[in-house]
């Protein structure tokens, strides 16, 4: 089991007074399902953005498969492309409303192909077949590929985003509150889907949420975040252990 992502002592400031992330260290190994739980405002979304290299960190380091990566460094970002994917909280914002779902879905595959879009253009037929296969994998009907985002429900859009994320067979998927906007029935379907896909395709994921039972369900190892700091870390079975941080215990009590 090797390390996919190692983040060490990450610090981030919003302004000179406001420290958002304090000495955050996270390690994610291959095939692992890691959870990050925290209430709103604790900085978990900021951390997600820093790990996805869409925001700069002020100090600390992020290593991806042994190589240091930085938000500002274009060549290190090349390592990320296609190996690390994301699923966001709001599926509506994660899809370009003006573009057909087929093209949004195939965007990663289109661009990660060495020869670029010329190659794909020549093989339009194949492209649609690949898209249909991806849609079926996530339980969506292939006819949806010709539609636009606003024609789909939230659950359907999120499935499409998941299909897009797995299309390039990434090593790591970072999910920031992927089911928080969906109602309970849809949520449980999507979570089942994610677990099934992980078993089949063997990727690691970092599952970020404020909902403890969901994180317990989805992850083997769980980190607890509060006010910009990691206050606890445990394996899922150890939730009710006496060693737990009081904040973790409080969360457990609320959700029980």
């Amino acid at each position: 089991m090797n390390n996919i992502l190692v983040a060490q002592n990450i610090e981030k400031y919003y302004s000179s007074k406001e420290k958002v992330l304090h000495q955050i260290s996270i390690t994610i190994r291959s095939g692992e399902s890691v959870g990050l739980i925290g209430e709103s405002g604790c900085g978990k979304s900021t951390l997600a953005r820093c790990l996805l290299l869409t925001q700069n960190i002020d100090s600390g380091s992020i290593m991806y498969q042994g190589t240091p990566v930085r938000a500002t460094d274009r060549s290190s970002f090349k390592k990320y492309k296609g190996s690390v994917q994301a699923v966001f909280q709001n599926p509506t914002g994660a899809l370009n409303p003006r573009i057909r779902l087929l093209n949004s879905l195939m965007e990663p595959l289109d661009h990660l192909h060495r020869r670029g879009w010329f190659y794909i253009k020549k093989n339009q037929h194949q492209r649609k077949e690949v898209a249909a296969h991806l849609l079926e994998l996530v339980g969506l009907s292939p006819d949806l590929m010709n539609r636009y985002p606003h024609e789909l429900s939230g659950g359907q859009k999120q499935r499409l985003c998941i299909a897009r994320a797995i299309s390039v067979e990434p090593n790591l998927i970072i999910m920031d509150e992927p089911t928080s906007n969906l109602d309970a029935l849809i949520q449980s379907e999507i979570l089942d889907l994610l677990r099934t896909l992980q078993k089949r395709l063997d990727f690691s994921y970092l599952f970020i949420s404020h909902d403890l039972p969901v994180v317990q369900q989805m992850c083997d190892r769980i980190l607890v975040m509060r006010k910009g700091q990691i206050v606890d870390e445990y394996m899922k079975e150890e939730l009710f252990d006496t060693k737990r941080h009081p904040y973790t215990q409080q969360l457990a009590k609320w959700y029980d």
């Binding site: 990320y80 492309k81 296609g82 994301a86 709001n90 994660a94 990663p108 661009h111």
Partner: peptide, 13 residues
């Protein structure tokens, strides 16, 4: 917006 982040992660130049 998130769809731009997704596009970047997908390697869109």
């Amino acid at each position: 917006k998130d769809y731009i982040h997704s596009a970047r992660l997908s390697g869109v130049p």
